[in-house]
Amino acid sequence: MDVRPEYDDLTIGVVALQGSFAKHAFSMGKLGIKSRAVREPEDLKLIDALILPGGESTTMSLLLEEEGLWEPMNEVLETMPVFGTCAGAILLGQQVDDERVRCFNKIDYKAERNAYGRQIESFKTSLIIPTMLDHDFHAIFIRAPKFREIKPGVQSLAVFGVDPVLMRQDNVLVASFHPELTEDPGIHKYFVDEIVLNSR
């Protein structure tokens, strides 16, 4: 995997309140890209892009509000590229089937949590992502959400069955599965190369 010289100047923030944040930092590390844990508003000033990891959306939403991160994050996300996986993808949508979860409304869909069922329905599968990778991607779905009322501005990059599972709208990339749990950093690389570096 080619490491680009532009990577040296980048710092990718990973919201590190709860969930798979360390795995995302590890995926970035594989690309030779620095990451920074975001737990307080000041952390947002030191990053070029943001990742919202997988985890429990109710827990994350609560901690975002309590730590005073929600408002400043909402503000920087007006322009800053962001990548959300699973719970992160739920938070970036317009709305979710739980009033306690406060969404950022940065991508035009509504999320339905645990749409495949409980853990016993969690699974791993191979995805074809033609616009991104020349090989299949091993995708791990954990109590994954589905997305409804997807607006035309949202580009579907991969589907599982009939459901879009990897989508992009401008600077926002989302996956209902967990690229951070897979050895292959291909999707993280796409986020950096096509979205983060292109938005500079």
């Binding site: 590190a16 985890g55 699974f123 791993k124 791990i140």
Partner: peptide
């Protein structure tokens, strides 16, 4: 399957 099992534990981290 084992990755799917540990995957849920990954999501619980820091909690």
């Amino acid at each position: 399957l084992f990755e799917v099992k540990t995957g849920l534990a990954e999501m619980l981290k820091g909690g």
